[in-house]
Design a protein around this nucleic acid. Structure first.
Lengths: 198, 198
DNA sequence: CGGGACATGTAAACGGTTACATGATTAA
DNA sequence: TTAATCATGTAACCGTTTACATGTCCCG
């Protein structure tokens, strides 16, 4: 899965060099899907060529020599076979979420508010981008791609709504009730304090 | 970052063995944050012990011998220092999204609808779980943890809403307009068809 | 004529998973 | 008595990133 197929996907839009593919992955919207560095792109291209999914056309692009890659028949079929497979469930690594999961009573909530404000800034930026992008009149975005962009927008809007609500709740002290039938919170902070005063 | 800190976070709730930590990561809600296998947990525990973040207390737990680990003072401080650092922006790897980005006109939209229905099923399942979890009367979930759960719920609800809308749009043929000022979609399918008939 | 973008590539390091090895205890 | 679960660990492998090496072309 993955890097190989992302490369095939990029090539489906038109012949590209390793450098082009890297630029595509550095695109602002990449935060919404994937990424790869030169260290994996070039070896992967070589491998895909050996397998017969792509072939190189040494081309003179505006005076500069570039090694452009294009999909073979086998490559198109592989891409389409992959598109047809049920996508695996998304893998999300969200440190903010993890940190909230292990937050404890002796941690100042003001720090958490700062984290939330920082996240808000970043998500607002991304939201602005995904809103403007399909209107720039330049990039090619397919109808189905537009559906995906609508999803990204909704997701970000929901996140921003949650952030605002959450900050309000924290600042008003109106937090939801904990589930703690065995006094775990209490046990935890006594354990912590005992260890810290040593 | 990450596995080391996730382990410290788990230990902050109480002394645990490598096996316990693994079970914690296998928890259904792990899809919402992190994961790790034995192959990384045990070596990590050893390393954390050497660094002085944790120490082992060989304990007899209901007849069974377990190597329980507990946070040291240094470990608590490290955990809290990490909690205080601005969390990095989430990394999301969503194959569905990627596939939609490279979907093309010659791909049957019925397949995409199947992908969406499959995703719907999985997200509904997760939503059910995160809704029931904080009500099971057993697990310990802190107030801040509850805020995180609220976020997960909102995110999943938004996703489900988007899925329903999207399926409707596809089935009614009422798709959003593409951005394609240079006839890229056309070029792409002629390139593809030419390659395929060879 | 120097700095920056364009362009291709590789070697070492890293972080993690998979698969395996081993054994104790418990419930059917 | 045997399958499942509890429990700890390692070695081989895999994919990816980081850092480096090298060179070109173009603009100011």
């Amino acid at each position: 899965m993955s890097i190989e197929h992302s490369i095939l996907a990029v090539l489906s839009f038109g012949p590209s060099s390793g450098y082009d593919i890297k630029s595509e992955f550095e695109h602002e919207a990449s935060g919404l899907f994937w990424g790869a560095s030169y260290g994996s792109i070039y070896p992967k291209l070589k491998k895909l060529e050996e397998t017969g999914y792509i072939f190189a056309l040494e081309e003179e692009d505006e005076g500069r020599k570039k090694k452009l890659y294009e999909l073979t028949k086998k490559g198109w079929l592989e891409l389409e076979q992959w598109l047809g497979e049920t996508p695996s469930y998304p893998i999300i690594k969200d440190e903010l979420f993890m940190k909230m999961g292990s937050w404890h009573r002796d941690m100042d909530l003001k720090i958490l508010v700062n984290h939330l404000l920082e996240r808000k800034k970043q998500s607002e930026h991304l939201l602005r981008f995904v809103t403007e992008w399909p209107k720039n009149g330049v990039s090619y975005i397919d109808q189905v791609g537009m559906l995906a962009i609508q999803y990204a927008k909704m997701r970000l809007e929901t996140e921003l709504l949650w952030i605002d609500r959450t900050i309000e709740m924290i600042q008003s002290g109106d937090l939801p009730k904990a589930q703690d039938t065995r006094g775990n919170a209490e046990k935890m902070i006594t354990r912590r304090r005992k260890t810290l005063q040593e």
